[in-house]
């Protein structure tokens, strides 16, 4: 009997490699579907990781300018980094508009992702937030803007506003970050397969295929051993 494989992903919204990694994992799942004639039984859950909790919600400037001002990276080098990652994103079919990006703290966006999870819409919400931030230049730091985006994926706008304003899911965000710390994760995206295997970074789809195969095989072996 085939085993369902759980993939836990630690990720941020303001994280280009997280968006690229999401696309590459999706490509890997499509490859597995084509190879095996059926979609693999995989469940994905996103977890919170704040890359720059020191970012002001109302930072005036682009992500490139934030890197220059707050991380001490020369503006020209920061721009070069952004241009490079933009080209790699395009190769995955994702349009990055770094000229439009409105850099902000992502704490509230993470709280929204936990609310969306409670309603079974976390994956759609994650995709909507990434596209809003990287492609559309939407602000993802204020409750009202987040509520608008949440409504687009079918969540109740008033419920979202109340939850974000009260910090109802702040504890869940903190718990995710503490769990990442316990794993020793210091960068994202980071993928944990079956709670036992790690894949760090936005790997090539072929690497994800191999990792999913290995984790699935190991889980099946464990089940057979337990049945013996």
């Amino acid at each position: 009997m085939s085993q369902s494989l759980k993939i836990d992903i630690w990720s941020d919204v303001a994280c280009p490699w997280c968006y690229i990694g999401k696309r590459r994992l999706e490509s890997a799942l499509e490859r597995l579907t084509e190879r095996d004639g059926a979609r693999p039984d995989v469940t994905v859950e996103y977890h919170s990781f704040e890359l720059s909790p020191d970012t002001p919600v109302d930072f005036e400037g682009t992500a490139t300018e934030f890197l220059a001002r707050h991380k001490g990276i020369p503006l020209a080098q920061a721009q070069q980094m952004q241009d490079h990652v933009t080209r790699l994103a395009a190769a995955e079919g994702v349009e990055f508009r770094t000229d439009r990006v409105r850099h902000t703290r992502t704490l509230k966006a993470h709280e929204l992702l936990h609310l969306a999870k409670a309603h079974g819409k976390q994956y759609e919400m994650k995709e909507r937030l990434l596209a809003a931030y990287f492609t559309e230049g939407r602000h993802v730091g204020h409750s009202s803007d987040l509520a608008d985006l949440a409504a687009e994926v079918g969540l109740d706008r008033d419920e979202v506003l109340a939850a974000l304003d009260s910090g109802r899911f702040a504890g869940d965000v903190a718990a995710d970050i503490a769990q990442a710390r316990a794993y020793g994760i210091n960068g994202v995206p980071f993928f944990v397969l079956d709670g036992r295997y790690g894949v760090s970074g936005a790997q090539d789809p072929a690497v994800f295929v191999q990792a999913i195969d290995e984790a699935t095989k190991a889980a099946a072996g464990t089940e057979e051993h337990a049945d013996a």
Binding site: C15, W17, H70, G187
Partner: peptide, 13 residues
């Protein structure tokens, strides 16, 4: 299973 992929660390990607 796979290490050293492209990632953001401390806000730098």
């Amino acid at each position: 299973l796979a290490d050293d992929g492209a990632a953001c660390v401390d806000g730098v990607c």
